[in-house]
Simulated scan of single mutants.
Amino acid sequence: MPDSAAPATRALEEPSALVAAWRGARNHCPRCDHKPLFARYLKPVPRCASCGQDWTLHQADDFPAYIAIFISGHLLAPVLIAAGSRELLPMGWLALIAVVGALLLTIALLQPAKGAVIALQYHWRMHGFDAAARDGDSRDD
């Protein structure tokens, strides 16, 4: 019996890299914009409930953590430099703000960064996200 969802998945228009990354960062499927992309905090759903795209193919590895740390550092640095140069707070308070701020920002940015990385891997057909895997076609060997 043919899968009724297969024709609908082929008819989807491919989003641009920016649109796909934005969808992934918002915890939406980069392909069809259906929510959720993640089953748990950093574990993607095996397949999209709407379009059926397989999300187990991604290989985000440590890159989302690098992105989250990079962004949180760039957001915290100006605040800490400004507060430290004007001696507005004692050094202990600045250290506490730096540690807590870095932890909170990094944790808050980790899932959106991973969603965007997965979306860009899908868009650029990296790893298992090639055209044959998207359409569900199998090669005759």
Rank of each mutant, 00 (worst) to 15 (best):
D3E: 13
S4C: 00
A5W: 01
A5L: 12
A5P: 00
A6F: 10
P7N: 08
P7G: 05
A8P: 00
T9C: 03
T9E: 09
A11V: 03
A11M: 09
S16F: 10
A17F: 06
A17M: 09
L18T: 13
L18V: 14
L18G: 09
V19N: 08
V19I: 14
A20D: 08
A20S: 11
A21I: 11
W22L: 14
G24P: 06
R26E: 06
N27E: 08
H28A: 15
H28W: 13
H28I: 01
R31A: 12
H34N: 06
H34L: 00
K35T: 12
L37E: 05
L37H: 06
L37M: 07
A39P: 02
R40T: 15
R40P: 00
R40N: 13
Y41G: 00
Y41P: 00
Y41C: 05
L42N: 05
L42T: 08
K43N: 10
K43L: 13
V45I: 13
V45K: 11
P46D: 13
C48G: 05
A49F: 03
A49C: 01
S50M: 01
C51I: 01
C51L: 03
G52H: 09
D54F: 11
T56E: 11
T56C: 03
L57C: 01
H58R: 03
Q59T: 11
Q59K: 15
A60W: 11
A60E: 09
A60C: 08
D61C: 07
D61A: 13
D62A: 08
D62T: 09
D62W: 07
P64I: 02
P64D: 04
A65K: 07
Y66M: 06
Y66N: 00
I67F: 08
A68F: 08
A68R: 02
A68T: 06
I69S: 08
I69M: 14
F70H: 12
I71A: 06
H74L: 14
H74C: 10
H74M: 14
L75P: 01
L75I: 15
L76P: 03
L76T: 08
L76Q: 07
A77K: 14
P78F: 09
I81P: 00
A82P: 00
S85F: 11
S85M: 12
R86S: 13
L89N: 01
M91S: 12
W93R: 04
A95L: 14
V99D: 06
G101C: 07
A102N: 10
L103A: 12
L103R: 03
L105W: 06
L105D: 05
L105R: 05
T106C: 11
L109R: 05
L110T: 13
Q111G: 04
Q111E: 13
P112D: 07
K114M: 03
K114S: 01
G115W: 07
G115A: 08
V117R: 04
V117S: 01
I118G: 02
I118T: 05
A119Y: 09
L120S: 02
L120A: 03
Y122M: 10
Y122N: 09
H123M: 00
W124G: 02
R125C: 04
M126H: 03
M126R: 09
M126A: 13
G128N: 10
G128W: 13
F129A: 02
F129T: 04
D130E: 04
D130S: 04
A131K: 10
A132D: 15
A133L: 04
D135Q: 14
D137W: 13
D137L: 13
D137T: 11
S138W: 12
R139V: 15
